[in-house]
């Protein structure tokens, strides 16, 4: 049984097809990184999973049951676009509302617990409209966490968080899925951050899922490269292009030689051409570069 199983999902807004024939599988216990450009159908898919907009076709199953089943939906938490809080109510009141919405036996205890988790205890008395962007985002995540949901659907949860806030959220996510049953679908443009926690990925483009893989499959697919610096970078690039098919300069100012054998061979080759390597290391491309390459391929 999977946490989320979507088959042939589609959604039309008038003539426009936002999602067409999308398949998606989120295993239990996964942190599923859902990646796509703005307008790719990512948010639309998430809204349909949460039952917030009707589908135009296809099926969505959550933990083996139809997504419209009441007993499955009570165990969900959501943060899509901005947090859904009443601006004139305090953080405490907003969270108590959601605790009551979920019919929790001891709502005060649960709200205190969640506020501690997202380090917002001190701000509980603030009106939501007076909170900063980062605090609002934490409140939004806190609202989604109330009731220990089995499935979390989070759209750009890290926006507005500072480095400490992002670290806290990473810990929260990892803690949630540690029981092997609870799962998170999280979309973010911060691919570097996503890569630190995601166990699975789904890449959506023009309303279709173009790739789904586990974190280890991504790791294997990511190309290895040797990154080096010499005292004459331009000449080094020229020389290396004569022997290796893919040479690039990266954003940190290193020359990258892709898909090659041993670094020592490169050093030797450059030495034979009168160039001394000042720094050399082997690395793999990350999720961000993998994604950019994939988008370029698609063109």
């Amino acid at each position: 049984m999977n946490a989320v199983e979507i088959r042939n999902l589609s959604k039309n807004f008038g003539a426009k097809q936002a999602v067409c024939g999308l398949d998606m599988t989120v295993p239990m216990g996964a942190i599923y990184g859902f990646i796509g450009e703005n307008g790719s159908g990512k948010s639309t898919t998430e809204k349909m999973i949460c039952g917030l907009i009707p589908t135009s076709g296809g099926s969505i199953a959550l933990y083996g049951k139809d997504y419209r089943d009441e007993n499955v939906r009570k165990d969900m938490g959501v943060l899509i676009e901005a947090p859904g809080c009443f601006p004139n109510l305090t953080v405490w009141d907003n969270m108590m509302l959601q605790a009551r919405n979920l019919n929790i036996e001891e709502p005060e205890k649960e709200v205190i617990k969640i506020l501690k988790k997202v380090r917002m205890e001190g701000a509980a008395g603030n009106k939501y409209k007076n909170c900063s962007l980062g605090m609002k985002q934490r409140v939004g995540i806190a609202m989604a966490l109330i009731g220990e949901p089995t499935l979390l659907v989070l759209d750009e949860p890290l926006n507005g968080l500072d480095a400490d806030g992002m670290r806290i959220m990473r810990e929260v996510f990892t803690d949630i899925v540690s029981d092997g049953r609870r799962s998170i679908v999280v979309s973010s443009h911060l691919l570097g951050e996503l890569q630190k926690v995601a166990t699975h990925y789904g890449i959506i483009r023009h309303g279709k899922m173009i790739r789904e893989m586990t974190a280890s499959e991504l790791d294997q697919s990511c190309r290895t490269f040797v990154a080096l610096q010499t005292e004459d970078m331009d000449r080094a690039k020229y020389v290396l292009k004569g022997r290796y098919s893919r040479i690039e300069e990266d954003e940190a100012g290193y020359i990258r030689v892709y898909d090659t054998e041993l670094p020592e061979n490169i050093v030797e080759y450059l030495y034979e051409n009168g160039l001394y390597v000042t720094e050399i290391k082997t690395d793999k491309i990350g999720l961000e570069e993998y994604y950019i390459d994939l988008m370029k391929e698609g063109k």
Binding site: I35, G36, E37, N38, L161, D162, A163, G165, M166, H189, L190, L191, G192, E193, E251, E288, Y291, I292, M295
Partner: peptide, 29 residues
């Protein structure tokens, strides 16, 4: 910004610095 736009902005920022400009920016990323 989506990942592609982030990538393009970073490339543009690099070019500005290489061309003798300077960039000062705050970020949480």
């Amino acid at each position: 910004l989506d990942p592609k736009a982030t990538f393009l902005l970073k490339e543009e920022m690099k070019q500005i610095c290489e061309g003798g400009g300077a960039i000062f920016f705050s970020t949480h990323v």
